[in-house]
Design a protein around this nucleic acid. Structure first.
Lengths: 232, 232
DNA sequence: CGGCCACCCACGCCGGCCGGTGCGACTGCT
DNA sequence: AGCAGTCGCACCGGCCGGCGTGGGTGGCCG
């Protein structure tokens, strides 16, 4: 696992530091360059400078602050990632606001660290990301994990699935069809029954699901996760 | 931050080890009990035993394998969490399969570590979880982060949002109302316009969104994330 | 065994809502 | 003025949703 970093300093990991505060950059440079397998090859003081520095120096990893003048780190991250051979990005921030975290990860960041991360762990995180993995601060991890747990206990989803219990097999099939936006005639053709029959099933669905529309029925179908193959 | 664990061993963190392999348990016990702020108070060899042990010994943290006979770790985790005062759970596994990770986190686990985690980091992870945070192995973190990034590039969502670009303000309002399952008359009352006007807006939505039904329109609204307040 | 009940599935008729079309009024821009 | 874009409304055909009804199946009890 860690043999690649200890065996030989064949090719150090090239870093780009991006922060509007020169002192912060100096501190980071101090910490990171003390590791012999890491090398700070450039610095930038805002997002647009970071874009230029990435193009100019081709770093392996970018450590970037979130809040910066001119262009913030999140939009810069979104610009950097995506292209082939793009560097991995580690976001650094003082505050672990939810929106920052989610936006950063959706922008393609592979790391999200708080600035109070101890030097040893910071270096470790850089190495982890350099190895193609991801690293988050514990509080950030907690947010992410909590977000997942909350999704499982999503009240809307649970309520919806609860209601599905009392549906018959046939009704569930019709429910799925309604959720796809099919008309009654379409459903009849697809499930081999008269359109009139489809209507009764839909009627039962309406009463059983406390819906007044077929639209609301479709919504319940989606909320229950019926429309998404179980790869979620 | 870490003062509580280094200042005084006032009250060590109580651990429960759950694994069907006695050797694995012995190894874990060896590693963990070497830290003076940690104390292994019980062991169990499968999920149902784990439930009993939790009730009997009230541990602070449960370290549990995923694959076990009788009752696997995931269902046991789902049983343990949820009640007030329940211990935090760290899942241990040899393989970092996607389904394991997601199920474990949705079951309320606060940690997910691979068994090749070095002893030092294992102890650190336990302390982190004891502090109320979460800790994952780097590869697991990568999966989770990748899942989030993939969600941002969700083709259905992007396609749906793309289509929303060419909608007018008013149409978007109507779209949201349709997505809630309201009838045209309801929408008219809510947006202060005639039902006939609502119909024209819905018609435009049908053509602009390539839909044949209002149900499909509602689905697009949901896929685009219009129906979920921006807390996602 | 026969009767009964509960459940699921199936169908047809009717009123009301939806969706398509045509049209007019207002605004802002060139 | 001309024009594009948006929002507003009214009429018509077709689909949806509500209601009543019947046939088929499986379980329970006398």
């Amino acid at each position: 696992m860690n043999e690649s970093s200890t065996s030989a300093p064949a090719r150090p990991t090239r870093l780009l530091l991006v922060d509007d505060d020169a002192l912060v950059r100096a501190g980071l440079r101090m910490i990171l360059s003390s590791a012999e397998d890491l090398e700070v090859v450039a610095e930038a003081s805002n997002g647009s400078e970071a874009l230029e520095a990435v193009a100019a120096h081709r770093p392996d990893i970018v450590l970037m602050d979130v809040r910066m003048p001119v262009m913030d780190g999140l939009t810069a991250a979104a610009q950097i990632t995506g292209r082939p051979g793009a560097p991995s990005i580690i976001m650094l921030t003082t505050f672990d606001l939810d929106e920052y975290v989610f936006q950063a990860l959706q922008a393609g960041a592979m790391g999200f660290l708080l600035k109070d991360t101890p030097p040893r762990e910071l270096v470790g995180a850089v190495r982890v990301v350099a190895a193609g993995e991801a690293m988050l601060s514990p509080t950030v991890t907690r947010r992410l994990v909590g977000h997942f747990a909350a999704d499982a206990v999503n009240p809307r989803r649970q309520k919806a699935q609860e209601r599905l219990r009392l549906l018959t097999e046939r009704e569930t099939e019709v429910l799925a069809a309604v959720g796809r936006g099919l008309s009654n005639a379409d459903i009849g053709r697809e499930l081999y029954m008269s359109e009139a029959t489809v209507k009764t099933h839909v009627s039962r669905l309406l009463t059983k699901l406390d819906a007044t529309n077929r639209v609301q029925v479709a919504i319940v179908a989606h909320d229950a996760g019926l429309m998404t193959d179980p790869a979620s």
